[in-house]
């Protein structure tokens, strides 16, 4: 009756063994659910996040354009993101949308910097 050997608290070991099995099952289940959640929510998040990022990129780009500082590359990124989104390529769309937002923000920063510091560019 080795399995009935007492532990240091003098509790029956059998109960511990069956408890460990249940715990292992629980762990397995937990990790399965976690991985499914992570992988599926990744693409769900991508789909949900593209539109706001794109909208932000468009708004920021329009602000830079109004100041005459639009870059030639940004609108193409936005168009690429829109096309990818329409084709269901959510990861690609998210990547392009983020790149567009990054560029739009930089061009607006450039415009604002130029407004305040254009004299720094005079090499005289």
């Amino acid at each position: 009756m080795a399995h009935l050997r007492g532990n240091k608290f003098n509790m029956p070991v059998m109960a511990k063994v069956s408890g460990e099995k249940a715990m292992n099952k629980c762990r397995l289940l937990f990790f399965m659910v976690l991985s499914i959640t992570l992988f599926s929510s990744g693409s769900l998040y991508a789909g949900a996040a593209v539109e706001p990022i794109l909208e932000d990129a468009r708004t920021t780009l329009n602000k830079a354009a109004a100041k005459g500082f639009e870059w030639t590359t940004t609108r193409k990124l936005i168009e690429g993101a829109e096309i990818a989104l329409a084709a269901g390529e959510k990861d690609k769309s998210l990547k392009l949308a983020k790149a567009a937002l990054n560029e739009a923000e930089k061009s607006l920063t450039q415009a604002n910097y130029a407004e305040a510091h254009w004299r720094a560019g005079i090499p005289l």
Partner: peptide
């Protein structure tokens, strides 16, 4: 004058550069 000396574009160049 401001246009001439302000840096613009992805390459961040001004006319003066």
């Amino acid at each position: 004058k401001k246009f001439f000396y302000a840096k613009r574009g992805q390459l961040n160049f001004s006319c003066a550069d």
